[in-house]
């Protein structure tokens, strides 16, 4: 990209400053996220779940797209957040915001613990160890049915209205507003993180994990840090789902959920921050529409969609669009 090399002339700080500047397309995108309130008032519950999935995908992007950690067990933190939020409300603390903070903190603590292990491995071993830890947690939640309700799901989740004003009703207005706000706030944090020197050295670790320590960057500490941040965000996504739907089941910890979010992120384009959000929108809207038309065989159409994206837009939708834009700049000077 031509712009980057120009910025690079002004040194790394100049580069980072340029990256943090808000582009017009970004502002337009975030304004557009408000449109469902006006245009699709009966789709807000779906919109809230898209926002939650987007948050989950952005969290995975931080570790996968920026630090090169492919995880097949990211639902562990999503599920921990969901169960924590559900249990807090079950035991009488139904206020959502404080519940959200508590639940994400708990997921973060677990994330830090896991990061100590995760940081020692790479490649296939890393994928399989995250997968194994996720599956173990899933089985543990099934076994601890006295706490989690087991396969029937956690019962007795009661969430107070947001700010004691807006209850999570059938229309999903409060749900979408809440989920969107949290997505936006965490997105700001994630954006800040990756456009900092810390974020830059993460990308260095992704590209060459052996070389970074040689340059004096404490790569393991960096990975632990970003893994913990990602776990907090995943936990927040899980807690949001639990709070906006008042349901928690084993499915929040399942391999399926880990795999889905990975598919969503790759579909949108990993390592691009907006990739997870676009992937979530496309995947979930497509799923909703396909399964509405064809409840039994919609997998077929989703499968074709994924295949088509790989063939025609490698590196996900944003990757493909990026190349298209670069080509456009070349042909129209």
């Amino acid at each position: 990209m031509a712009t980057v090399s120009l910025e690079a002339l002004r040194g790394p700080h100049g580069y980072l400053r340029a990256q943090t500047r808000w582009r017009r397309t970004e502002i337009a995108f975030w304004l557009a996220t408000l449109l469902p309130f006006l245009l699709f008032p009966s789709y807000l519950q779906l919109a809230s779940q898209i926002a939650i999935t987007a948050l989950f995908a952005v969290s995975l992007d931080l570790i996968l797209g920026y630090a090169g950690i492919v995880s097949l067990g990211h639902a562990a933190f999503f599920g921990l957040g969901a169960y924590a939020a559900g249990l807090i409300s079950k035991f009488g603390w139904g206020e959502p915001l404080s519940g959200l903070v508590l639940a994400s903190t708990l997921a973060g603590v677990a994330g830090y613990g896991a990061s100590v292990v995760v940081v020692r491995f790479r490649h296939l071993a890393l994928i399989m160890i995250t997968l194994g830890m996720g599956l173990l947690l899933h089985e543990a939640a099934n076994s601890a049915s006295w706490l989690t309700g087991g396969a029937d799901g956690l019962q007795g989740v009661r969430i107070r209205p947001l700010l004691e004003l807006f209850s999570f009703d059938l229309w999903g207005r409060a749900a979408y507003a809440y989920a969107l706000l949290m997505l936006f706030l965490t997105f700001l944090v994630a954006r800040r993180v990756i456009n900092s020197p810390f974020g830059l050295s993460l990308r260095g670790i992704r590209e060459n994990a052996v070389r970074m320590p040689a340059l004096g960057a404490p790569s393991r500490a960096h990975v632990r840090k970003v893994y913990t941040i990602a776990a907090v965000m995943a936990g927040m996504a899980g807690a949001l789902l639990a709070q906006t739907t008042s349901t928690v089941s084993l499915e929040v910890l399942s391999f399926q959920r880990s795999a889905d979010v990975l598919v969503i992120l790759i579909l949108g384009g990993a390592g691009r921050l907006y990739g997870g959000i676009l992937g979530a929108i496309l995947y979930m809207v497509a799923r909703d529409q396909f399964s509405g038309i064809n409840p039994q065989y919609w997998y077929f159409w989703i499968g074709l969609l994924l295949i088509a994206v790989v063939l025609f837009l490698p590196n996900g939708i944003l990757g493909g669009l990026g190349r298209a834009a670069a080509w456009w700049r070349r042909v129209s000077p």
């Binding site: 999903g172 739907t245 928690v248 084993l250 499915e251």
Partner: peptide, 10 residues
């Protein structure tokens, strides 16, 4: 799509 109370509720 299977066990998914959040989806069922939505």
């Amino acid at each position: 799509g299977g066990v998914a109370p959040d989806v069922a509720k939505r």
